[in-house]
Design a protein around this nucleic acid. Structure first.
Length: 979
DNA sequence: GATCTAATAGTTTTT
DNA sequence: CTATTAGATC
């Protein structure tokens, strides 16, 4: 085998090599745009294992986003393979966001955290809405702009966030502002009591655990820490990194202070700038060779940053790789926005098909997806009678028939189908609408949007939902369970969605609406009163005005279209041709803004002094720098004197004024440089399609189910006992944490199960002892299951411990990730001598108890086999067996995990991924599947075939090796004609 | 260099 | 409605 140094030299340049192999305790790597920092990071990991003999378990790498984590993982697996190391080492290290690491730490400290629900920003706001009285939020209302309700909610959410991200103490806040201190203490307690975490709180809890020495089990293993995008780290993350590195061997941080554009939400660019003074003895590297952009672009962007930032930046002197390929940089000023927009569209039209030579040597013509139009803001400017800012450009593209994709949200309710959904909710605001109101609504809003809608069906939907929501609450009775997602599906059935042949984009937007309702359901236990329903309506109306973050929509293949987007969204991406448009004084850079939060300024002084939670001229300059450095060969910076709605002529942006290199053209009249034309073809990008087992499971059941769920984004209604399985599972995890190598008694099991029990959607009875309700009955059942488990499998505790392990399995075209439950047995030295995979199934809370007798053995087996495969990768060949543990009847069923069984499992996964990537989503209906399907009300249920693909190999199920094929084939009725 | 005045803008977004 | 900016004016 060639030695690791020569492999690294073959794949890295001198600067990258020096950084990747620096043995210092702390290493700062300043990575200019396009300088190959992912590659450097990936080979650093390979070097740590091959040269330093690092255990893969001792390596932790943090990225800023999940997407970046996926791409680093792919590169690491390639670097490992290139270095002669096992790519499956990937599963044994941690590569991910700081947030997911914090969640992992918390679950390791206390299994109870595994049943906590994570609140994103929208859900945290809903939580505050739901608990407005309990948190005394009315006391904070006078602080909100215009005394407005939602300003109060937003201000409270921001306060909580800032308190955590700045790692302030509750006492310090209370000392400055007693009311705010009370709110923080109350929210802290309520989140813990109701078992919710938000992104800021999970970091705080993890950091506090580390500071208190309660996380040593995880922390002590970490020897090598790598942090990507270090310029965007905030105070709590800085502390977490410090804690994690305190007992470790090495810390490598990578970043570029010139690309720090998140100061307004707390990122601290000074951490990277002062790294060397804060870690005396740290070594520093600059990887400054830009492989992305032309010399002119690199030189001009650097000069611009220097002119604007001067002493507030680290000098990096980036260089470009000389090239004889054509390219150009123009800095243009137009009289009027219409001229500017039409010039941009015209230039794109001309450049499509222009000969372009890739680094790989591939020659192709530029395609629409090679172009980006970037702007400071795509939002609609005030006053609201102007169209959104991107329209001037996108309409010019439309006029020329050039496809474009808008990376700008906020137009969800412009779509008549989605507007009809929201109006339907609104109609139920104060009670069931009368027939004439409903009829008018049907004619004016529903029919035009949904041609297959049915009035009589709709009338009965409204009648029954009006009753459910507004029925008076009977004192002493348990609350009714009213889940609005069911209203969504009932409405869409009455609207005739299944019969309509809408564009995917329409269905996708309806899916976003469904996801908004899911956010509501995740937080509200039930929507069983006029007041609660009205909070939802108010939330929906705010969502409509401000736009909803629909981030979870995943783009599998980049469409062949021009990207119209903000600069922020394009961070980390690159395009052959970039237009930075709408560049005028007071727009780019935008005016400064000051901190306006509720946390008293003295508590944040150091952060405010460095410009955090504000927008500053420096940060605008870095944003402009970031925009310029997205471009590979063609870069155009444009602005206009006359813009829509402007009375006085706009002035040239000072940033554009810094682009004064004589090689930058200011002439719009000549055509773009070119060395001829070729057939336009999209760039071939490595498809990195990460997935979880559960995603694939839906595809193997019915590809249409997968499409509705994952591509369109519909969420099923929350089942009555949602969370039952996870709370039982967490109790068993907790038992194993408390009793490793000793046997718990039945009383221990009962104590832990009772203390741990939590259901979010069933409320406890008011008088549990005299009048137990569904919550108490579920609690009894859960306790019974845990006791039964201890009784039957006491020996497990004596010999082995339970472990929840994360895994990543590389398969063809994908990395399947998830977590597994392992029972491992160790010898005296702590070496694993035996391991088995256990999948705990409670089989409670499903739709139909009768269905439990007829388990989906293909799915369960596939799951265990996949986990077994991961266990082999994690633990080596000690995995003896795989089981499905049916907690309901105390059985352990052995699942085949022979090589043949594992190979068949992987082949099924790869087959499903192939279908997903090629967007092959046929309906595979059957009586049994469709009657239990979450989406039966919106699915046409027409039997369809796969497009030219044959079935994957049969799976190995208990007692039936190699006989049962996935249910999209096995359970398929080609003559199925609806339920 | 300080002070006044008219014009202009009211984000950006990940976990 | 308020903060910010550029330019005019002292």
């Amino acid at each position: 085998m060639p030695n690791i140094d020569s492999i690294l030299h073959a794949n890295l340049n001198q600067e990258q090599f020096a950084a990747a192999t620096d043995p210092a305790g702390e290493v700062l790597t300043l990575a200019c745009a396009g300088s190959g920092k992912s590659r450097t990071l990936a080979y650093r990991i390979a070097w740590l294992i091959a040269d330093r003999g690092a255990n893969p378990e001792s390596i932790v790498a943090f990225t800023f986003t999940e997407k970046a984590a996926d791409s680093i993982k792919l590169r690491v697996s390639q670097a490992l393979a290139a270095s002669g190391l096992d790519p499956n080492f990937l599963g044994r290290m941690f590569i991910g966001t700081i947030h997911s690491f914090c969640q992992y730490i918390l679950g390791d400290i206390d299994a109870r955290y595994r049943q906590f629900e994570v609140l994103d920003e929208n859900r945290l706001k809903l939580f505050l809405i739901e608990n407005y009285p309990a948190l005394d939020l009315h006391r904070l209302r006078s602080r909100a702009r215009g005394n407005a309700y939602f300003e109060t909610i937003a201000g409270a959410a921001q306060t909580w966030n800032l308190y955590n991200e700045e790692l302030l103490s509750q006492a310090a806040v209370a000392a400055h502002d007693a009311e705010l201190g009370n709110f923080i203490a109350a929210l802290n307690d309520l989140l813990l009591q109701r078992e919710f975490l938000d992104f800021s709180f999970m970091q705080r809890l993890a950091v506090e655990a580390m500071q208190a020495g309660n996380a040593t089990h995880v922390v002590s293993k970490v020897q090598h820490l790598l942090v990507d995008e270090y310029q965007d780290i905030n105070p709590i993350q800085d502390e977490l990194i410090r804690q994690l590195h305190s007992g470790g061997d090495s810390l490598l941080v990578v970043g570029d202070d010139d690309q720090s554009i998140y100061g307004w939400r707390g990122a601290d660019v000074t951490r990277i700038q002062t790294f060397q003074s804060r870690f005396p003895g740290a070594s520093a590297h600059t990887i400054g060779t830009n492989y992305r952009s032309t010399e002119l672009i690199v030189r001009s962007a650097d000069a611009m940053a220097h002119a604007e930032l001067g002493a507030n930046r680290i000098v990096k002197n980036p260089s470009a790789v000389p090239s004889s390929e054509p390219g150009e940089f123009r800095n243009l000023w137009f009289d009027d926005r219409a001229d500017e927009a039409s010039w941009v569209a015209q230039t794109i039209e001309t450049l499509i098909g222009t000969r372009y030579v890739e680094d790989s040597g591939r020659i192709r013509g530029l395609a629409p997806s090679d172009f980006a139009i970037l702007m400071r803001s795509t939002r609609q400017p005030e006053p609201n009678d102007h169209p959104p800012r991107h329209v001037a450009y996108s309409s010019e593209l439309s006029a020329r028939g050039i496809p474009f994709s808008l990376e700008a949200g906020g137009s969800l309710f412009d779509r008549p189908q989605v507007a009809a959904m929201r109006s339907s909710f609104e109609l139920l605001r104060s009670g069931t609408p009368d027939r004439s109101t409903l009829s008018a609504f049907f004619t004016s809003e529903v029919q035009p949007a949904f041609p297959h809608s049915d009035f009589s069906k709709l009338a009965s939907v409204f009648a029954s939902w009006g009753r459910m929501i507004h029925a008076p609450v009977t004192p002493g009775q348990p609350r009714r369970r009213v889940y609005p997602q069911n209203f969504v599906f009932d409405l869409l059935e009455a609207f005739g969605l299944a019969q309509s042949n809408f564009d995917d984009a329409v269905v996708q937007d309806l899916g976003v609406f469904s996801r908004i309702i899911q956010d509501v359901e995740a937080v509200f236990p039930s929507v069983d009163s006029t007041g609660r329903f009205n909070s939802i309506l108010n939330f929906l109306s705010v969502v409509a005005e401000k736009g909803y973050d629909t981030s979870s929509s995943e783009i599998l293949n980049r469409p062949n279209a021009v990207t119209v987007s903000t600069v922020h969204k394009m961070k980390g991406l690159e395009f052959p041709v970039v237009f930075v448009v709408d560049v005028e004084a007071q727009r780019f850079p935008k005016n400064r803004s000051r901190y306006s939060g509720w946390i008293p300024e003295p508590l944040l002084q150091t952060s405010l002094d460095r410009g955090a939670y504000q927008s500053t001229r420096d940060e605008e300059a870095r944003l402009f720098y970031t925009a310029l450095t997205r471009a590979e060969r063609y870069l155009y910076v444009t602005g206009s004197a006359q813009v829509p709605g402007g009375r006085r002529a706009m002035r040239v942006s000072p940033f554009a004024g810094h682009l004064n290199d004589p090689a930058i053209s200011t002439d719009a009249s000549t055509p773009p440089v070119s060395s001829g034309n070729e057939q336009p073809q999209q760039r071939i990008e490595a498809i990195n399609f990460p997935t979880s087992f559960s995603d694939v499971k839906y595809y193997l059941r019915c590809p249409k189910d997968y499409q509705i769920r994952k591509i369109f984004g519909f969420s099923p209604a929350i089942p009555d006992l949602f969370g039952f399985g996870s709370t039982v599972h967490a109790s068993i995890g907790k038992l194993h944490q408390e009793f490793s190598h000793t046997t718990p008694t039945i009383a221990d099991a009962e104590r832990i199960a009772e203390a741990n029990f939590n259901l979010k959607h069933v409320l406890p009875s008011r008088n549990p002892s005299t009048n137990p309700g569904p919550y108490e009955r579920a609690k009894d059942r859960a306790t019974g299951l845990v006791k039964d488990y201890v009784e039957r499998f006491a020996s497990d505790f004596a010999q082995s411990r339970q472990l929840e392990a994360r895994f990543e399995i590389p398969a063809e075209g994908t990395v399947v990730s998830g977590a597994i439950d392992l029972m491992i047995e160790e010898d005296d030295q702590g070496n694993v001598i035996d391991a088995c995979v256990v999948d705990f199934k409670t089989m409670e809370g499903g739709d139909d108890p009768a269905a439990n007798s007829d388990l989906e053995w293909t799915e369960l087996s596939l799951q265990v086999q996949l986990y077994a495969k991961a266990a082999v990768d994690i633990l080596g060949n000690v995995t003896e067996a795989g089981f499905v543990h049916l907690l309901k009847d105390g059985q352990r069923v052995e699942v085949p995990i022979t090589n043949a069984a594992l190979d068949a499992a992987i082949a099924n996964i790869e087959w499903a991924v192939e279908g997903i990537v090629s967007q092959d989503f046929p309906m595979r209906p059957s009586q049994q599947k469709c009657s239990a399907c979450d989406f039966k009300k919106i699915c046409p249920m027409e039997p369809q075939n796969f497009s030219g693909r044959t079935a994957p190999p049969a799976l190995h199920t208990p007692g039936r090796p190699g006989q049962k094929v996935a249910s999209c084939f096995d359970d398929f009725d080609e003559n199925f004609a609806g339920l």
